[in-house]
């Protein structure tokens, strides 16, 4: 357990020493979201309608940007091998790395989303649901994305390939995440969507680190 905390702390420390990478993904998120009103027009009704979808799609893309780095640096400098040879089970360390990835790339999106939601004329209760859905959904993105990051580790054209592999798998998260806000706005209530997101998250917490570990071992062979 202490090893799990140690790797989370290490990755957070490394992210702090390389703040620019983290901030780039964050600004990408902001810019993509801000482009939509420019492309579509500023009518508040329309913006309110597309807000959940736009914010979610932008969150997916911003996550993709940071996924590349999840294992690549550790792979390049040989630390990944050391992690695999540590007495601590690799699956545990991988879980820690995914958690750190969420803390540095998912959580900032969640915190930033309400500010961007205001641009789209969402009211306070809708913003609350948006944050809740992102809070459940972004860890899911990190977990599923980790599998793709491990599979494409050290592979030619890894970055583009990664999005090809991972984005289709993000469809359920997108549907339930954006759907939660839409359902709330249209008065249907978001609890169904949110509980399904939570169920998916529970499933991914069990299976994704395991599949990621298997993929990493293949990549290191």
């Amino acid at each position: 357990m202490s090893a799990l905390l140690a790797i989370v702390r290490r990755d957070l420390l490394l992210a702090m020493r390389r703040k620019s990478e983290m901030l780039t993904a964050l600004f990408f998120f902001i810019i993509v979201v801000s482009l939509f009103p420019l492309g579509i027009g500023p009518e508040p009704v329309l913006l309110r309608k597309i807000a959940p979808g736009v914010l979610w799609v932008a969150a997916l893309l911003a996550t993709m940007l940071s996924l590349n780095r999840l294992f690549a640096a550790d792979h390049a400098d040989g630390t990944l091998e050391q992690l695999a040879l540590s007495p601590t089970p690799l699956g545990l360390l991988v879980t820690g790395k995914i958690a750190a990835h969420w803390l540095t790339s998912g959580l900032p999106l969640v915190l930033l989303a309400p500010v961007l939601g205001v641009q789209f004329d969402l009211d306070a209760s809708a913003l609350g649901i948006l944050v809740g859905a992102l809070l459940l959904g972004t860890p899911l993105l990190s977990l599923i994305g980790a599998i793709g990051a491990a599979l494409t580790l050290g592979v030619r054209g890894g970055g583009v390939l990664l999005s090809l592999l991972v984005l289709p798998l993000y469809v359920p998260a997108l549907i339930f995440g954006a759907g939660a806000v839409e359902a709330h706005i249209s008065g249907l209530g978001a609890s169904g969507h949110l509980s399904l997101l939570a169920a998916l998250l529970a499933l991914a917490v069990f299976f994704a680190p395991w599949a990621t570990t298997a993929a990493l071992r293949v990549a290191m062979e």
Partner: peptide, 13 residues
């Protein structure tokens, strides 16, 4: 898309 991803991954390694 899933099929394309599978084929692309195999081709890239």
């Amino acid at each position: 898309f899933l099929y394309i991803g599978f084929i692309a991954l195999q081709a890239a390694i």
